[in-house]
Design a protein around this nucleic acid. Sequence first.
RNA 1: UCUUCAGUAGCUCAGUCGGUUAGAGCACCUGACUGUUAAUCAGGGGGUCGUAGGUUCAAGUCCUACCUGAAGAGCCA
Length: 469
Amino acid sequence: MAKLQRIKVVDVMATPSLVSQEINVKGWVRSRRGNKNVSFIALNDGSTINNLQIVVDLSVFSEEALKPVTTGACISVIGQLVESQGKGQTVELIAKELEVYGTADPDVYPLQKKGHSLEYLREIAHLRPRTNTFGAVFRIRHNMAIAIHQFFHERGFFYFHTPIVTASDCEGAGQMFQVTTMNLYDLKKDETGSIDYSNDFFGKQASLTVSGQLEGELAAMALGSIYTFGPTFRAENSNTPRHLAEFWMIEPEVAFNEIEENMQLAEDFIKYCIQWALDNCKDDLNFLASMYDKELLERLNFVIGNEFVRLPYTQGIEILEAAVAKGRKFEFPIFWGADLASEHERYLVEEHFKKPVILTDYPKEIKSFYMKQNDDGKTVRAMDVLFPKIGEIIGGSQREESYEKLTRRAQEMGVPEKDIWWYLDTRRFGTAPHSGFGLGFERLLLFVTGMTNIRDVIPFPRTPKNAEF
RNA sequence: UCUUCAGUAGCUCAGUCGGUUAGAGCACCUGACUGUUAAUCAGGGGGUCGUAGGUUCAAGUCCUACCUGAAGAGCCA
């Protein structure tokens, strides 16, 4: 007899014609229950959150043969697929042959059939993909990555790879991780006591990137519309449920786009991704909604169905000042020129508008040197997309295309020209209006999955004091 | 980094005013059960109470420091 091709559980359930056929499935045991006549194995192979029920007739199999079939064990089963006699599943597999690939000693296997806390599962991140929750989260994570590529590809954007090792902290976006091959036990210093990098691998001080934006702009000035999607690194000592030291960022950059088109792109982009999740991750979303967040689906649909508010910073300040005048208390003072604290952003998004808000035209003092300066001499064409629950999900701007204005602003803000001469060259040669933004992939996932801690939407979180696995 | 809260069985937790031998549910083991749905029922084993000091006749419980985790804040995506 020809060897049976193994079929994924997701395909078993999506193919009605398989009923009454003999098939082979392989996967990991989630639970086994039953009595001395019949045993039921819930089998999961990761292809879907749904388990296939394996029915084992104990007049065919000995109890001894089933002993190693415990939670976590990996097995291969050949049998006939039939319509289920019991409730809770439409089909089930009557086992004819059962092979155990790998046992999981119940005394030491850390996962049980019962639920575990997310904090505990973080300590066993090497095994947590085997749980329903993390299976769902990581399938959604994959789908969001595909959605992102699909969205940009459909619109003629090119996926552009920016470097991960970089020699300059251009954006000043945060503390950087240094990259070196120097012997830290025997550091050579020069007469002035500073470290001599000329013999280091790159011949100069190098770090992991905090953003691919500046290189992305170079690409937009040639290919027109590009996006980056890759890992970025921040050595900030941030201990919050919204920060990682290593995270993935999506950064589109578009020649000839002005701030309004940039906002529209951001809005279309987020809505596309959410729609993709609703269309392609139904089972996983339903599971997460039922376990963690009953309003998840309503919230996703709400974001798709409503226009994001566009609000200049100055008007935002006016709304907040009016709220204070009416007696609303904030911990931090609010005035024109102040950077908004989380409490202010949350007030605008969750209390005042009750919708996602795109805040624009911030005071130039609190934004980066490369943002396009407005004619008022006070503000720049920055935009932050603020979301309920998770806060800032996107930060972007129209870029300053004038060589003179850009170099002056870089000087004022202490960005050394020798580090960014190549960036300034885009403005020296064939400059053009252009815009872009950055979106934290894991923040998007927080919103889409309803998870509340960013460490639970990336397989192996890197945070201060934590780089296990 | 700051503030607050927490750390007791493999997991999730209870443990009163400081007082005898530290408890429960789940998991695990044994048994029962004719189709279960995180199966159910009965029994059993399982503890350096985060670590180090201190107060006290007596500390899981009070004090100090440190470690770890969580939430909020700052920084940001």
